[in-house]
Amino acid sequence: MTAHRTGTREEWLSARLELLEAEKELTRRSDELARRRQELPWVRIDKEYRFESDEGTVSLPDLFAGRSQLIVYHFMFGPEYTAGCPSCSAVADGFDGSVVHLAHHDVTLCAVSQAPLARLSRYKERMGWSFPWVSTAGGDFAYDFKTSHTREQWESGAVDYNFRTVDFRPPEGVEAPFLDEIAASVGTDWATYRQEGPGVSAFVRDGGEVYHTYSAYERGVDALWGMYQWLDRAPLGRNENGWRRHDEYDSTPEPAAPARHSCCG
Rank of each mutant, 00 (worst) to 15 (best):
E125S: 08
L179E: 00
L26H: 07
C264K: 01
W42K: 14
L33E: 11
L20V: 03
D106F: 13
S156A: 15
G7R: 12
L236H: 15
D167G: 05
W225C: 13
D250L: 13
R9I: 12
P253E: 09
F75Q: 09
D93M: 06
E209R: 09
L17R: 13
R29E: 05
R36K: 10
A83M: 07
E152Y: 11
Q69T: 01
N162H: 03
D62E: 12
C85L: 03
E125H: 04
V159P: 01
L13E: 10
E55N: 02
D46P: 01
E125F: 01
V107T: 15
A202C: 13
V186S: 07
H246M: 14
A223V: 11
G220H: 11
D206I: 01
Y49L: 06
Y211L: 04
A158C: 08
P235I: 13
R28T: 07
G84W: 04
D222Q: 13
S185I: 11
S130T: 09
S215Y: 06
T57I: 06
H261M: 08
A103L: 12
E48Y: 00
D54R: 04
S68H: 09
G94K: 08
T82R: 10
E55Y: 00
A256S: 11
H74F: 00
Q153K: 10
L120D: 03
T136K: 00
H105R: 15
R28P: 01
E152T: 14
T8D: 12
A3P: 14
F203E: 07
D222N: 15
A158F: 08
A216M: 06
Y217R: 03
E32R: 07
S201W: 00
C263H: 02
D144I: 11
R122S: 12
A65F: 07
R35P: 04
T2S: 15
G208D: 08
S87H: 04
S113F: 08
G207I: 08
G138K: 14
L17H: 12
L13V: 04
Y161P: 08
A223M: 12
Y217H: 11
S89N: 09
L117N: 06
A111H: 08
Y193G: 04
G56A: 02
W154R: 12
E209D: 09
V186T: 13
A176C: 05
V112W: 03
P86Q: 08
C263D: 06
A183C: 05
L13Y: 02
E25D: 12
A92T: 06
S89P: 02
Y81C: 15
T192Q: 02
W129Y: 15
N162I: 00
L40V: 00
K47F: 11
V200D: 10
R36H: 06
D46Q: 05
L236Q: 13
Y49A: 04
Y249A: 07
E18M: 04
G207F: 03
A90Y: 02
G7E: 10
R169P: 01
W12G: 09
P235H: 10
R151P: 13
R238G: 05
V200I: 15
G237K: 14
V43S: 06
V72L: 08
E48V: 05
L19V: 02
E32H: 04
T2W: 11
V91M: 09
E23C: 10
E172P: 05
H246S: 15
L33A: 12
A257C: 00
G7P: 11
G56K: 02
S87D: 07
T27P: 01
